[in-house]
Amino acid sequence: MRLKLIACEVLFRELCQALADTPHTVDVQFAPKGLHDIGAPGMLARMQQMVDAVDEAQYDAVMLGYALCNNGIAGLTARGIPLVVPRAHDCITLFLGSKEKYHDFFHANPGVYFHTAGWIERGTDAGELQQLSVSHQMGMDSQYKDLVEKYGEDNAKYLFDMLCNTTRNYSGIAYIAMGLGSDSAFEEQSRRDAAARGWSFTRVEGDMRLFRDLLEGRWDEADFLVVPPGQSIAASHGSDVISITA
């Protein structure tokens, strides 16, 4: 098959490894991590633009290196060729290798923040997308001194506490090791980050299965949604995560 992959840059290393091994011919387009920060309607619009820009005569299907991503792909429509999407709430399912494993880990460890190589190296600064981000619009990325200048000391303290401490309820970092050569440096960085915050640190073994299944065309119904031409993706709010809507 000749396939097009549109993927989030957070998955860069894992996808590149799986791409090297796939029997199919794949063209790849990576998009910025910051798409996640601009709200679902903004992300959807940009995702649809990328899908619409695919030269469909060249490919058998378009694969997404994305999850539901807080509804950022809900409403995305397949045009002339199928769209293949992992059944996942977010990329942690992809890194852990199954949505069930993620579900169990998530509910057993509610205060854990996940780190991966891509998440760390692609940073927290959304670049040009930062201005459009929901956190920016809400003032969550404000500097304390700017708040003081705008609202006075008394209100600034209150606002900073209310809006800017986005991880106050977290208590640990889990680094997902994918078995890549780069793991140890990123794991070390996560460990230091956890220590600096006084959080616990856990190393979790990742699983390349879903990356490989996606790129090798094993689109099992349980793990992937294949959206036929003309139909769209919807959030299902069930264990299948996403479904098709006409």
Binding site: Q137, M138, Y158
Partner: peptide
């Protein structure tokens, strides 16, 4: 008005 203005008014 944005979220910060909303919050300080509510306060």
């Amino acid at each position: 008005y944005f979220v910060p203005e909303l919050l300080i008014a509510a306060r």
